[in-house]
């Protein structure tokens, strides 16, 4: 253990994880390597593609460019935190049904951005959906099926 290591606790998907890390580590690498939740993807590692999107107190954050130590005392949600037992989150089900998953690398980030969008805007217009997903790049789908899945999820979840 080098001198700049710090012992911190992170709350991820409601579970408390004690980790000892360098404070220069990004949240993404700690979630994947220390905590072992590999659903969150490393895409560009540059804050440009959105594959690493997680929720921090319910708000979307590119975890590749956020210090893990800065997440202490806050609540992190990753793609693994959306499943209820065996039951997929409606957006997980809908993105599969609509054909919105091709290579799948952007999928966890897309789903996390959708959750954040529907939280602040439960009945989004198509334009609001497109802006809501605009930080998540997809090379395969052309976005149409993902947008359709968000629309369906909003209909299912809207109060």
């Amino acid at each position: 253990m080098t001198s700049d290591q710090q012992a911190i606790t992170l709350s991820v998907n409601g579970v408390t994880y004690p980790v000892t890390i360098s404070p220069a580590r990004n949240l993404l690498s700690v979630i994947r390597s220390e905590i072992g939740l590999t659903g969150t993807k490393e895409g560009c590692d540059d804050c440009e593609c959105g594959a690493c999107m997680v929720l921090l107190d319910g708000q979307p954050v590119n975890s590749c460019s956020f210090l893990a130590a800065q997440a202490e005392g806050r609540s992190v949600t990753t793609i693994e935190g959306l499943v209820q037992g065996e039951q997929l989150h409606p957006m997980q089900r809908n993105i599969l049904d609509e054909g919105g998953v091709q290579c799948g690398f952007c999928t966890p980030g897309m789903i996390m951005s959708t959750c954040a969008l529907l939280e602040r805007c439960p009945r989004p217009t198509d334009d609001e959906i497109q802006i809501g997903l605009s930080g998540n790049l997809c090379r395969c789908t052309g976005y149409a099926t993902i947008i359709a899945a968000v629309r369906r999820t909003a209909e299912e979840l809207a109060p």
Binding site: N136, C138, Y143
Partner: peptide
């Protein structure tokens, strides 16, 4: 060689197809 300068279309740019 990065996604800020090599510009893919975003969801906000997606047209009706």
């Amino acid at each position: 060689a990065g996604l800020l300068e090599y510009k893919l279309q975003t969801a906000a740019d997606a047209p009706q197809i």
